[in-house]
Deep mutational scan, measured.
Amino acid sequence: AEIMKKTDFDKVASEYTKIGTISTTGEMSPLDAREDLIKKADEKGADVVVLTSGQTENKIHGTADIYKKK
């Protein structure tokens, strides 16, 4: 799966169907969080990951919607 910015995804959204939401939390780098989200998306058969939230304090927390091409 590839990560797309919401603004970029909005241009092609009609080509995809939302298949779920994924999240990651833990003591990790932003890059590790990104890789974890991609891994989870791949496991669910998603083609595209669109980040919906991200937070960093002591731990990273990120959520994303996942989509499959129609």
Rank of each mutant, 00 (worst) to 15 (best):
Y67N: 04
D10Y: 06
D65A: 03
E43C: 11
V12A: 02
L51W: 07
A41Q: 00
K18T: 04
E57Q: 10
R34N: 07
I38K: 08
T21S: 11
T17A: 06
K68M: 07
T63S: 08
G26E: 12
K70S: 07
T7R: 08
T56C: 14
E35K: 13
D8M: 05
E57A: 13
L37S: 01
I66C: 04
L37I: 05
D47T: 07
S29T: 09
A33T: 07
T17R: 10
V50K: 00
P30N: 13
T24D: 03
A41V: 00
T63C: 09
A13Q: 08
I3G: 00
G45A: 04
K5D: 15
E15Q: 13
K40A: 05
I19A: 03
A64G: 04
T25Y: 11
I60R: 08
G26L: 13
K6A: 10
S14W: 13
I66P: 02
V12C: 07
V50H: 00
A41T: 00
K59A: 14
K11H: 06
M28P: 05
P30C: 15
T25V: 10
T21V: 08
K59L: 15
E43D: 07
Y67F: 07
T7M: 10
G54S: 12
D32N: 08
S53L: 14
I60A: 13
Y67L: 03
D8S: 03
K39M: 06
S23I: 09
V50R: 00
G20E: 03
K70V: 09
E57L: 10
V50F: 00
H61L: 14
A1E: 01
F9P: 00
T21G: 03
G20P: 00
L37N: 00
Y16P: 00
I66N: 01
K69R: 09
D47H: 11
T63V: 08
D32T: 07
V48T: 02
I22M: 02
T52M: 10
E57C: 12
K18Q: 07
N58L: 10
A46S: 03
I38D: 01
P30G: 12
G62L: 15
S14H: 15
N58V: 11
D32R: 07
E2R: 15
D10I: 10
I22L: 06
G54F: 15
S14G: 12
A41C: 02
Y16H: 03
D42R: 13
A13V: 07
A64Y: 14
D47S: 06
I66E: 04
M28F: 07
I3L: 08
T17C: 15
Y67G: 03
S53C: 14
V49N: 02
V49P: 00
I19F: 03
T52Q: 13
I60E: 11
E57K: 09
M28G: 09
L37H: 02
H61A: 11
I19C: 07
M4A: 01
T63W: 07
H61G: 13
G62M: 15
A46I: 02
L51Q: 03
T56I: 12
P30H: 08
K59S: 15
P30V: 11
D10L: 10
K18L: 12
E2D: 06
V50C: 03
A33N: 05
V49L: 14
Q55E: 14
K69F: 05
G20L: 00
K6Y: 05
A1N: 01
V48C: 05
K59H: 12
E2P: 03
T52P: 10
D10T: 06
I38A: 04
K40V: 04
T24I: 15
I60D: 09
S14L: 08
L37T: 01
E2H: 14
I38Q: 06
T24C: 14
D32M: 12
K44Q: 13
D32V: 07
K40D: 00
E27H: 12
K39F: 06
T24H: 04
A64P: 01
E35W: 13
D65V: 05
L31W: 08
T21F: 07
Y16L: 03
M28L: 13
A1W: 01
I38V: 07
G54Q: 11
S14D: 12
K5W: 14
D36A: 14
E15R: 09
K70W: 04
E57N: 11
Y16D: 02
K69G: 03
T17P: 02
S23Y: 12
S14I: 07
K5C: 15
S53K: 08
D32W: 07
E2S: 11
Q55G: 12
D8E: 10
G62W: 15
A41K: 01
K69A: 05
S14V: 09
Y67A: 04
G20D: 04
K39E: 04
K40H: 05
L31M: 11
A33C: 11
I60Q: 13
I38H: 03
E57W: 06
A33Q: 10
A46E: 00
H61M: 14
S53H: 12
K39P: 01
I60F: 15
P30K: 08
T17Y: 15
T24F: 14
E35G: 05
D32C: 12
V12K: 05
E15A: 08
